[in-house]
């Protein structure tokens, strides 16, 4: 499956990665070759094979419904770029 410039731009937008045109052009090339390598998978017949999401056949353990966490806001917000009155600040969100 060939990769177009627009595919890279679209992926970059979905992933919120700013790319210059030069970078995008370079990634079209890189990603194109990676996908070419990946396309080898298409040669393999996987009809009827169930997808494997986890290497072990184990199931989800459930946690008891208990409050185990205490307030650590000030500790957690020490590594935040912008906070005020306990809120994380971002550029104005327009709905």
């Amino acid at each position: 499956m060939a990769l177009e410039h627009a595919d890279v731009q679209r992926a970059a937008h979905l992933a919120r990665l700013g790319l210059t045109d030069d970078e995008a052009a370079r990634y079209v090339d890189d990603l194109g070759r990676i996908l070419e390598m990946v396309d080898m998978l298409q040669a393999l017949d996987t009809e009827g094979v169930a997808p494997l999401a986890h290497p072990l056949d184990v199931t989800q353990r459930l946690r008891a419904d208990e409050v185990t966490e205490r307030d650590q806001r000030s500790r957690f917000q020490q590594c935040a770029p912008a906070v005020e009155n306990g809120l994380y600040l971002v550029p104005r969100v327009v709905e």
Partner: peptide, 21 residues
Amino acid sequence: RSKIFSGASTAFGAEPNTQAC
């Protein structure tokens, strides 16, 4: 009482981000 994937409280009306673990 606690969140779906963490042990933080779900109580309504707390100070901002004090129940975000």
